[in-house]
Amino acid sequence: MKNRKRLRKMTVLSLLFALAMIFSFVESRLPTFIPIPGVKLGLCNVVVIFTLLRLGAPEAIAVSVLRVLLSSLLFGNMAAFFYSLAGAVLSLAGMILLSKTKLFSPVGISVAGGVLHNIGQILMAMLILGTAGVLYYLPVLLIAGTVAGALIGLAAAYLTKRVDI
């Protein structure tokens, strides 16, 4: 019985990871409609939030970090990997903390995740470029992160409510 449960969890996690990879690929094919580095929808976060709320923090960390690693290798480059990782780690940390407090719905959690993802990328850009100049993009990235986060959060809230795993 215990084995069956473990097997089931492993299968579900693998499926979620595969789904995150598909979203990554779709997103890498989408045209960027705002020409500022780091502005994107963050489709994968639907899966990460779903995993976080339905399975737990360690599972969400696994899906997110593996996703960043593999999608950078497949669809991006090593520079993209560092930006994505910084964003993903900061965003995950914030979302896990917020979900523990139970103060916000998935939409609020996702908004925080989106904004923190962009802040993480700016911090990494400051580190790599060695200049605070990239802070110039902070206002736009804050707004973009909030809007994208809210949209993704709505999708994640709907899924978490409706989809049974």
Binding site: L103, F104, S105, G108, V111, A112, L138, L142, T146
Partner: peptide, 19 residues
Amino acid sequence: RTLRDLVLILSLLCIGLIL
């Protein structure tokens, strides 16, 4: 919770716009 979400979203948008 929805109210808190809205407050979070609006304050972040305001901070972004002010900056």
